[in-house]
Amino acid sequence: MKSLPITIDSVRKAYGSYVALDDVSLDVQAGEFLTLLGPSGSGKTTLLMALAGFVRPDSGKLLLGNRDITRLAPNKRDIGIVFQNYALFPHMNVLANVEYPLALRKTPKAQARQQALDTLARVKLEGLAKRNIAALSGGQRQRVALARAIVFEPRVMLMDEPLSALDRNLRETMQYEIRRLHDDLGITTIYVTHDQREALTMSDRVAVMNSGRIQQIDTPQQIYDRPSTRFVAEFMGEANILAPGSARTIDGGDASRETLMIRAESFHLDAKLVGRDGVALEARLCAKAFRGENWLLTLALDDGQEVLVCIPAALASGCAELAAGQRVTAYAPAEKVHAIPGAIA
């Protein structure tokens, strides 16, 4: 199966004065797994629904390969979609749900049956073909929705927060399985989520969206370690944003005049970084909390800025003894210190 690249070119969509998509452009390569990540109302679902054909952009173009699909009816797009609530057809059994797109394409009965059964086996649902939808668990429904979306061999797959209704353990299993399915089929996939961890785990690239714009599009590592805006830095995890001039270098010199982003887990409390490149923060301990796998310390700089420091439990032998109000020095190695370009603190 040949998958297709997707081109989103200056797409705009407004509902009255509310701008849902503000001139969004994005190229998704053939076979890529790209995640649209953002808080609710950021426009990620609107963008997905525009690709699906349920939202008509006010302006801009959508291309599937070389084909302009901006005005094409949803049923002519040949895109597999997995909806948030699965949207299975409750009046049909599992097999009929999966056969549905094939029946619409007038695939011969016997071939459709075989194709549906093969796809059900692919998502590990063999044996449940005759089951009613109401008799399935959440995870099984998710798999039926997947099977139904891929059975007609679409060139592109769209997924709208498909795992949000599942409990945490199942979610992690399904993350792995969806990614494996993607790798097997090589199908171009756009995945929408508001869960940054899910986005980092699953994607080739992540596009972080906020208020109708793409803030940054990059590999998960770049997004996490080298956020291009303050919003991305804070959305992706416990980030400390330090005003220019508030940190000094480890050897005592002036740190940068830029706004710095340092992740909570990039800090060390011991002085083993002394003599290397990096920054050091002189601070007072405000609060500490033991979270099982790590300690979370809240520090206050002398100018009042709060800094979160996360020390893995295995390296935190001294943390239990620290008392509030005590002065501590937090060190971060240079490679974990990121200047946010153009950010105003």
């Binding site: 699906a52 949803p74 049923n75 797009r77 597999g80 909806f83 549905y100 619409l104 139904r148």
Partner: peptide, 12 residues
């Protein structure tokens, strides 16, 4: 959503 799903699967 079922109608949207059906549409995405190829139904007019």
């Amino acid at each position: 959503n079922q109608v949207q799903a059906a549409r995405s699967l190829g139904a007019g």
